[in-house]
Design a protein around this nucleic acid. Structure first.
Lengths: 210, 210
DNA sequence: AGCTCCATGTAAGTCGTTACATGATTCA
DNA sequence: TGAATCATGTAACGACTTACATGGAGCT
């Protein structure tokens, strides 16, 4: 249930349409919690019916033929945002496809195992790069959203606002680095195991026999 | 879609009832992919209708009033297991509630932020301990499942079978350690930010005003 | 007789994905 | 006039969670 709270946090900076919110979402929260625009619209409607958001329908276009819906936080929404930040949640149980596959690599060849680790490394190198770029942007206070957030906040809070976000993304950078190191250790492991063996036949042929 | 493949991998060691499979699951795959027993039974039925598993109904009890269903891998199931290990999947996008909350800690007090990081640390310390214990068990080849797996496999494959699993769990240990370090850095950060401020009032009061 | 384990599910609901669908506005 | 962008959704499906439900077997 992080999407709803991410939405509340985004709207704390001021009212926005679903479309605007989705844009800002893609450039901020999406790094830690991905969501489709369709899901965001659905969630906005739900938060509205629950009274955590209020809506103003704004006409647009010269003839006002079209409208857009501007959402804003209600008192209840602000209270829920605060409740959520304060609440201690037990993290969801582990669920990582790459690691379950890694435990059964013997059903493939050494070459195939290597390919898995290489893909893993490449993926997390990309992640690391994204996160590093995002930390740079945050430190330069370079997103419109962060600007709005800082403008609304009293001066003494500015440091904390930026520091919390930077800390989170730095954590993700370290995590990505750990994944890269793990993949590289995996490649070394495969090299060691494969010494003198055929790299292209499965280490163990999966077998239907009982 | 890791559950189905984990099930196939478990059944590669030989036929089992859903109940037995769920037990083994809890002591192996569950460390990387949690699932309820109810979901396992559902998945077994589905794999059966898809032809990846075959079933034998076995009577039990002295009067054979009850039955149990023993599942085994079919040729198609073994092929699917091999296909999966070989396939390169793009990892699901990031989705971590702890990190989204960490980016919005300014809506709570410093004391509350500290509580979040402490809970995070405690959680991953537990995880690290479980994983470390599991690595020990694996290295001693101490689970019934691993024994069955090794018994079915040719000698030269034994090293790789154990090594892949140990490598996966060692990766999870490193990951847990990274989370612990991140939480500790977070605690330090809060201490720095909180210097001279009231620890119990929100850094920023979430506000409904537009 | 009663407790624990063995054994197998169903039902309702939530969260999220993928694909589809529509139409106005703005600007070149 | 055509393309990109603004703007908002619906529908079907899949994975998973939570809670409920049932009954035999084995042992004391």
């Amino acid at each position: 249930m992080s999407l709803r709270h991410a939405v509340l946090a985004l709207l704390e900076v001021g009212s926005m349409t679903g479309y605007e919110l989705a844009k800002h979402f893609d450039q901020s929260v999406a790094y830690v919690w991905s969501a489709q625009h369709s899901q965001i619209y659905t969630e906005l409607r739900r938060l509205e019916t629950e009274g955590l958001l209020a809506v103003t329908t704004v006409p647009r276009g010269p003839k006002e033929l079209a409208t857009k819906r501007a959402y804003r936080l209600t008192e209840a929404g602000a209270a829920e945002l605060h409740r959520w930040v304060t609440a201690i949640e037990t993290p969801a149980s582990v669920r990582d496809p790459a690691y379950v596959k890694a435990t059964y690599l013997e059903y493939g060849s050494y070459a195939e195992a290597r390919a898995q680790f290489r893909a893993h490394r490449t993926h997390y190198e990309e992640q690391r790069n994204w996160y590093e770029a995002h930390v740079d942007v945050l430190e330069r206070r370079g997103t419109a959203l962060l600007q709005r957030r800082l403008n609304r906040a009293p001066g003494p809070a500015h440091e904390a606002i930026v520091a919390y976000k930077v800390h989170a993304y730095r954590g993700l950078i370290e995590r990505a680095k750990a994944e890269i190191a793990w993949a590289e250790d995996g490649l070394e492991l495969v090299t060691r195991l494969a010494a003198g063996a055929d790299p292209d036949t499965p280490v163990l042929q999966p077998d239907a026999a009982d």
